[in-house]
Design a protein around this nucleic acid. Structure first.
Lengths: 240, 240
DNA sequence: GCCGAAGTGGGTCAGTTGACCCAGTTGCGT
DNA sequence: ACGCAACTGGGTCAACTGACCCACTTCGGC
C-alpha cells in the first residue's frame, strides 16, 4: 500500500464505505469490509478514523453537502414550464437509473442518520439541502419559461423533493421504468399547475392556497398568452 | 415462559422483531434482541424459526398483506374531491405521526428486501399492494364526490403512493408538521386535478374513454384469521 | 548519509452473533 | 393417570466485529 497523506486516505475510505453501503447496507459496512474495498489494511482504518462511527458521521456530512443537483434545467427557451420540469425530472431519473446503488446508499444513509441519536439533525439538514437545490431549479425553470410561481418557492421545492423521493423509492422497489415515467409526467404537470404565465395581467398576488384552485378543466387563464403557451395544457395532452 | 402453540410463538416473535427493527433497524434485530423483546429464551427462537433470515422473510410477507389502508375516505357527501382527498391524506398522516416508529420499520423492511437477493420481488409486491389499496381509496373518493378520473386508476394510485412515501420520508427526516401539511394540500390538489366532475355533462367522452373508473372489483378478499399461519413447515427438521 | 516521525502490517482481545445441541419438563390425548 | 411428544432452558461453538497495540518500514529534512 502506497504512502499517502491522511486526508487522501480518509477520502478513499469514505468512497469505499459508500460503495459497500450501497451493496450491503450500513450494517454491512464493517471496518474490514470497507478497508478491503479500499484495498488497505485494517490498521490504516484506525489510523485515519478514530472509529467506525466517525467514518459514518463524516460520510453522511460529506454526502449532504456534495449533493449537487436535484434536477437539471437545461431546456431551450420556447418550451412550456411543464415541459421544462418534465425534462428536468427525466434527467434526474436517468441518473438514478444509471446508478441505482448510489440512490440506495443515499436512502440507507438517511435512515441511518434518522435512527442514530446524535445524527438526527444531519438528516434534517440533508433535506434542507435537497430543498434548497430544488428551489434553485424551480426558480430557474420559471424564469426561463416566463412563469411565476403562485406559492412560496420553499414549499414548492419541498413538493418537488417529495416527488423525486417517492418516485425513486418506488422504482428502487419495483424497477418499473414506465410507471416511473408516468409519475414523472404527472409530477411535472402538477408542479406546473402551481405557476401562472408571467404576462403582466394577473397581478392578483393571491397566494392564499386554501381553496383557490380552479377546477381542472382549464381554458381559463389562457386567454392572452400569445406566445409559447400551448393553448390548453389540460387533461388530455398527457397522452396525446 | 408459558407454553404456547408454535403459531402463537411465531407471531409473537414477528411482532417483537418489528418492534426492534423500528428502533434499531434490521441489523439491530439480532436473534437475541428479538427474543428478549418477546420475553423468551433464545432456544425458543430456533424452535419457531429455522433461521433469522426466515423470520425476516416472514415478517416482510406478513407486513405486506396485513397492510390495510393507504388513506381512508370517510367524508360526508357534498365535499369536493379535493377536500375528500385532503382529509384522507391527513388521516393517513395522523397515523404516521401517531406511530413514526412503525413507518420507520416499514421503510427499513422495504430497503432490506430490496437489498436482499431472494426478496426483491417481495418489495415489488409490497408496492403493488400499496397501489391496489390506493386505487380502492381513489375509486371510492371519486365515486362519493361524483367525479371521474381522467387517467387509469392504477397510474393515479401509483402517484398517490409517491405522495405518501415522499411526504412520510421527508417528515421522518425533519419532523416538520406544517411542511407535511402543505405538501398534503398540494397532493390533494394535484390529484384532484386529474379528475373531472361527473355531473350530467359527461355525455361526450369521445377521446380516451377507457380511462373511466372501474367499480372496485372485490376479487381478492381474504379472510385470514389472525394466526392461521401454516403450521406445516415450522420447525421439525432439527428434530426429525 | 542519517534520524526521527509518519505511516504500515500483522497480530491480539473481548464482546457479539447465528446456529444449534441435549437433557429435562410439562401438558395434552387417550 | 400416564406416556410421550411438544416445548423449554441452559448451555456451547465458530465466526465475526470494533478497537487497538507495537515492532517495523520508509520518507523528508537536515
Amino acid at each position: 500500500m502506497a504512502r499517502m497523506p491522511v486526508a487522501e486516505r480518509r477520502s478513499r475510505l469514505l468512497a469505499a464505505a459508500f460503495d459497500v453501503i450501497a451493496r450491503h447496507g450500513v450494517a454491512g459496512a464493517t471496518t474490514r469490509a470497507v478497508v478491503e474495498a479500499a484495498g488497505m489494511k485494517l490498521a490504516s482504518f484506525h489510523y485515519a478514523f478514530a472509529s467506525r462511527e466517525e467514518l459514518l458521521a463524516e460520510l453522511v456530512a460529506e454526502v449532504v453537502d456534495s449533493q449537487q443537483v436535484v434536477l437539471e434545467v437545461t431546456s431551450g427557451s420556447g418550451s412550456s414550464l411543464e415541459t421544462v420540469l418534465e425534462l428536468g425530472l427525466r434527467s434526474y431519473f436517468a441518473q438514478v437509473r444509471a446508478d441505482p446503488l448510489r440512490e440506495r446508499a443515499m436512502f440507507e444513509l438517511t435512515q441511518y442518520s434518522i435512527r442514530t441519536p446524535g445524527m438526527r439533525e444531519l438528516a434534517a439538514k440533508q433535506y434542507e439541502r435537497y430543498r434548497s437545490l430544488a428551489a434553485e431549479s424551480l426558480a430557474e425553470a420559471a424564469q426561463r419559461t416566463g412563469a411565476v410561481w403562485q406559492r412560496p418557492l420553499p414549499d414548492l421545492a419541498a413538493d418537488l423533493v417529495v416527488f423525486t423521493d417517492g418516485i425513486t423509492l418506488a422504482w428502487l422497489a419495483d424497477g418499473d421504468d414506465e410507471r416511473a415515467d408516468r409519475s414523472i409526467r404527472f409530477a411535472a404537470r402538477a408542479l406546473a399547475a402551481e405557476a401562472v404565465p408571467n404576462t403582466d395581467t394577473d397581478t392578483d398576488t393571491d397566494t392564499d392556497t386554501d381553496t383557490g384552485i380552479r377546477p381542472p378543466t382549464a381554458e381559463h387563464h389562457e386567454s392572452r398568452s400569445p406566445e409559447s403557451r400551448s393553448p390548453e395544457r389540460t387533461r388530455d395532452d398527457h397522452r396525446a
